[in-house]
Simulated assay, not measured.
Amino acid sequence: MMLHEDKFEFLSYRTPASETIAEALPFMAEVNNYTTSNGTTLEKSSLVRDVGVNMSEDLSWSPHINLMVDQANQIASWVLGVFKDRTKPVMMQLYKSLIRSRAEYCCPLWNPTKIADIHAIESIQRNFTRRISGMKIMNYWDRLKELNLSSLQRRRERYMIIHVWKILHGVCPNDIKMVFKENSRLGTKVVVPPLTKTATALAKTLYDNSFGVKAGRLWNTLPRDVNTQCQLECFKAKLGSYLDSFPDTPPTPGYTASNQNSLIDWFSQRGGPQMAR
């Protein structure tokens, strides 16, 4: 098979600690680039875009989120400049079809936990909904209720839970080897992979933020009547009702919330942390 080597990029994942150690090694110049079979040298890139997602060498999704937020805000500015109608039906249709869809592309993969990243993404919806007629005087949390919207944070967690359902029922490949177990009282639960006690703080952060762990913990908050649904549309309907039973108060500058608004946080406040482990 002949490959178009000029279209390849070279990305080397490394942590800040490994970067410091590696700089002192005499052969580092050789591993900072890659030579293809025909002699083409690929210089190391700090950010590589693959299937619409930007991956950075420091294992952070913040660069991808920043680029996505900028693009979504540019589209929002274009929409507000071209369309003069600010009525709710028109604005909501434009927002859902042109702006929100861009802000949610592949979000189960890069779903952030940093408050700054959550703020940045939520600002897309917060700023646009302020421009809807009659919404400017309302605070963001009240606007969500008035417009029957979920926060972008809550929607990302919903997508993660739905993806776990698809893995469980064979709709999507189980390429992360997610393990499920049946419980006569609690229904279907995810076995969250353990982390060694000697793991570093960075490893623990990456572990907690990984899809296999975060999505598994989200799934484990679901009650039996939700996690045992075998039809996707029935599951989505039950899941929607379940999510609506929790407050939706996303982290927002100037607002004081009782937690970080994750479904896991609300579930723990109801006294069920043992089910989410």
Score class of each variant (00 low, 15 high):
residue 4 H to Q: 11
residue 5 E to V: 13
residue 7 K to L: 14
residue 18 S to H: 06
residue 22 A to Q: 14
residue 25 L to S: 04
residue 27 F to Q: 11
residue 29 A to C: 07
residue 29 A to Y: 03
residue 30 E to H: 12
residue 42 L to Q: 05
residue 42 L to F: 06
residue 43 E to K: 15
residue 45 S to W: 02
residue 46 S to D: 15
residue 46 S to L: 09
residue 47 L to Q: 11
residue 50 D to T: 09
residue 51 V to M: 12
residue 54 N to I: 10
residue 57 E to W: 06
residue 62 S to L: 06
residue 66 N to Y: 05
residue 66 N to H: 06
residue 66 N to T: 15
residue 69 V to I: 13
residue 70 D to Y: 08
residue 77 S to Q: 05
residue 78 W to Y: 06
residue 79 V to K: 08
residue 79 V to C: 15
residue 87 T to D: 13
residue 93 Q to E: 07
residue 95 Y to R: 12
residue 97 S to L: 12
residue 98 L to Y: 03
residue 99 I to A: 07
residue 100 R to H: 08
residue 100 R to K: 15
residue 101 S to M: 10
residue 106 C to W: 03
residue 107 C to I: 15
residue 110 W to V: 08
residue 111 N to H: 15
residue 112 P to L: 12
residue 115 I to H: 03
residue 117 D to N: 15
residue 117 D to P: 11
residue 118 I to T: 09
residue 127 N to I: 04
residue 127 N to T: 05
residue 129 T to A: 11
residue 136 K to W: 01
residue 142 D to V: 12
residue 142 D to A: 15
residue 146 E to T: 15
residue 150 S to I: 06
residue 157 E to A: 10
residue 159 Y to V: 02
residue 162 I to N: 04
residue 163 H to V: 02
residue 163 H to K: 09
residue 172 C to D: 12
residue 174 N to M: 09
residue 174 N to F: 08
residue 174 N to K: 07
residue 174 N to G: 08
residue 177 K to W: 02
residue 179 V to L: 13
residue 180 F to N: 04
residue 180 F to P: 04
residue 181 K to M: 03
residue 186 L to F: 00
residue 199 A to M: 00
residue 204 K to E: 01
residue 205 T to H: 04
residue 207 Y to V: 00
residue 209 N to G: 04
residue 212 G to T: 01
residue 213 V to H: 00
residue 216 G to H: 03
residue 218 L to E: 07
residue 221 T to G: 10
residue 222 L to W: 01
residue 224 R to H: 03
residue 233 E to L: 10
residue 234 C to F: 01
residue 236 K to D: 02
residue 239 L to G: 06
residue 246 F to I: 09
residue 246 F to K: 11
residue 247 P to R: 07
residue 249 T to Q: 12
residue 250 P to Y: 12
residue 251 P to Q: 10
residue 252 T to K: 09
residue 258 S to G: 06
residue 265 D to K: 09
residue 265 D to H: 14
residue 266 W to N: 14
residue 269 Q to F: 11
residue 270 R to P: 02
residue 272 G to A: 05
residue 275 M to Q: 07
